[in-house]
């Protein structure tokens, strides 16, 4: 990917990352590293560190909640779970995304054809 393409992708990802996290958490509860690994694998984020401020805001906004769970040994992990509030906004995002991508696809298709 060249630099401009990277820039476009970064800008677009920024707006949807939050909902990608919600989508991941709607499948099952995850701890930070799991979420980060998934997002990196899907090439949705490049900076794992920036995930945590996002998660902190989502928690403040009430779309996720956290709980501590015993991992192996004495360590414990902070698990993130989606809330009803989060499910609602994920659903809403889904419909907006569907609409938007249709419109954009149509527009782009129109240009290309």
């Amino acid at each position: 990917m060249n630099l401009n393409a990277e820039k476009i992708a970064t800008n677009l990802r920024k707006g949807v990352l939050e909902y990608c996290v919600l989508a991941l958490l709607s499948e099952r509860d995850m701890y930070g590293l799991e979420i980060a690994n998934q997002l990196v694998e899907l090439e949705l984020t490049a900076s794992e560190g920036s995930l945590y401020p996002l998660l902190a805001r989502m928690k403040d906004a009430g779309s996720v909640r956290t709980r501590w769970e015993q991992a192996d040994g004495s360590r414990s992990r902070k698990y993130y779970a989606i809330t009803d509030n989060g499910k609602e906004s994920l659903e809403l995002f889904g419909s907006v995304w569907g609409q938007l991508s249709n419109q954009v696809d149509g527009l782009l298709g129109g240009h290309h054809v």
Binding site: G32, A36, A46, S47, G49, S50, Y52, L54, R75
Partner: peptide, 30 residues
């Protein structure tokens, strides 16, 4: 905790830290 988990999962220290992204960027995102 993230960096500790990644180390335990088998990544090297520098890999784990590198994947976090520049401190400046993380601060900006925060």
């Amino acid at each position: 905790e993230h960096s500790e988990e990644s180390r335990i999962s088998g990544r090297t220290e520098s890999e784990a830290i590198g994947a976090l992204g520049e401190p400046r960027e993380v601060a900006k995102a925060s």
